[in-house]
Design a protein around this nucleic acid. Sequence first.
DNA 1: AACCTTTGCGAAAACCTTTGCGAAGTGAAA
DNA 2: TTTCACTTCGCAAAGGTTTTCGCAAAGGTT
Lengths: 343, 343
Amino acid sequence: MPDTSFMSKRHISLKDLAREIGVSISTVSRALNNHPDISLEMTKKIQKLAAEWNYTPNPLAMGLLKQATRMIGVIVPDLVTHFYSSIISGIEDVAEENGYYIVIASSNETLKKEISSVENLLKSRVEGLIVCLSQETRTYDHFDRLINNGIPLVFFDRVCRREEVPVVVVDNVEASLKITRHFYTNGFRRIAYIAGPPHLNISQERTLGYLLGLESCRLDFRPEYLEKCDMSPESAAEATARLLNLPEKPDAIFAINDTAVFAAMKEIKAHGLRIPEDIALVGFADEFHSTVVDPQLTSITHPTFEMGQEAARLFFRQIENQETEPEQVVLKTKLVVRKSSVK
Amino acid sequence: MPDTSFMSKRHISLKDLAREIGVSISTVSRALNNHPDISLEMTKKIQKLAAEWNYTPNPLAMGLLKQATRMIGVIVPDLVTHFYSSIISGIEDVAEENGYYIVIASSNETLKKEISSVENLLKSRVEGLIVCLSQETRTYDHFDRLINNGIPLVFFDRVCRREEVPVVVVDNVEASLKITRHFYTNGFRRIAYIAGPPHLNISQERTLGYLLGLESCRLDFRPEYLEKCDMSPESAAEATARLLNLPEKPDAIFAINDTAVFAAMKEIKAHGLRIPEDIALVGFADEFHSTVVDPQLTSITHPTFEMGQEAARLFFRQIENQETEPEQVVLKTKLVVRKSSVK
DNA sequence: AACCTTTGCGAAAACCTTTGCGAAGTGAAA
DNA sequence: TTTCACTTCGCAAAGGTTTTCGCAAAGGTT
């Protein structure tokens, strides 16, 4: 009568199989790995029992042995924004292909939580990190430990230290430039832009694209049309209000991200102005929101899922080759024209 | 001269500390755990070095020893919907308090992926699962292994096997009833409801609330006003179209979830009808979307973050007490009245 | 002086897996 | 009969931690 008392255990181990068959643990291990040292007959017998008993190697033991947990730490500014959750989907997609799991932490847009997340994830022995910087982050030394020890690290969207760390970004300059030119083509001349915090690369690049766009349309740069917000709805609403109260109002506005654009939209409506008749509006927004508002919003769409996939691919490239130049993946955005910017 | 060659190692271990101080590993372990067997002097010395060298116990080794990984598996139908990402935030919040991490898998609304996610998460030795069923799921035996072995399991929102498994749900019956009565109070009499797949508890409950609501308003139930969709935008749009093509159109519509409601909204506009003048609309939708559409949408809001927190709490209650009656947490929804349902 | 108790610490097992090395057994060649 | 080669498998270590048991020295008691 076979001993099945251990079947109530959560998981069975090599030892259980070895005891049942009456061989040593090492024989079982080798049989399951098709090692030539083990006779074909014994191999088959062991593999059959392992299959019946639904044996799977204990990943903790493997992690201890190989010093590899098959876990990727992911840090995002928040979990509930579609932009990030979609990127996470992309990361998960590639991670799963490679037999990795992701452990997600949210910085809540604070530097403090970002730092503690880095620490905690490293403590729990993730093999590396994929990170989008928080809005507050202006110092970057909490990544020293990763960089100096060659622990895989990838930044996406909001990035830093590009000489040392591979990044995935979109071509923000081109995106802003496209929007500006789109406005111009559709007859708008007083084009305003609401930027974000100047220390963020995305903010700098989008502002640059705005300026280049104006130049390529031979429009003069008017400092009062370059507004700033901290990316909160309230601050974006205030920036919009300032624009709308100018003696010469802009006739077209775009803003750094979707939160800001939707706040701007509300503010414009609150001022009793029509979109796009009085003011045209274009956003860096995601697909779903843009089609649901009224009027439907022309916007730059990010290839979010692909961004996540690319970030994960850069991660695995680091896992494989230790020494490598940090790559930069630059993805193109798409300008989807809807009603909010066409008279 | 202290040997610092191992400082390039990713992590330091008890062995490193022991070697440096010149005591055994067990002494170091005990000192760090404030075991009374170790002299105060030695304890202090060891703890000081451990702090300096930034020692943290290897969670893999601990997991192996204690048979506990401090990981919770979470399975959601998708990652990109605000409803789920917000719930995940809530789960993470409580998990972090308890020193646990969450590992997230998405079923993509398919039974197949749900089953494989259960298997894979168990393989990677999570201590239990928090799950929202996929839309396809009508068989539930892939949870047998958890239930029979006493592995912690919690369902939320879309649930099954309530006699055996603790669940977190909202009071869907009351929510639907509230909407129906709200319509009635505001003068609408031809109230239609677009339901979801009948095997889902949320669908059943919301339909029941609709019927009870009609009854409590002394309105007759008209079968043609009870439509059905599979929760995709296309199917919801078709359901809406059927309602709008009825000889006697409804003057108020609500639908099972936000995806369906937004699809209905587009369809109503496409038919050239005004909201709320021609047709009133109320949704099971989340805060952000509802305020961004035009007109702003009256809707039932879910306490998503709290749902996640409650789910996690139920989880930890199982971790602590092995034997316990499965609890049911029923949270109340809120009807937030905006323009879409008030003439 | 002989015995007992306390204090302070080390050895080893346990959790699970892989793998280099060595050993036992068998058959064949010298 | 001895030696050699080959097959087939076990031992032990390593990875990091906790914990049971046990040992030695120091102190106190009779």
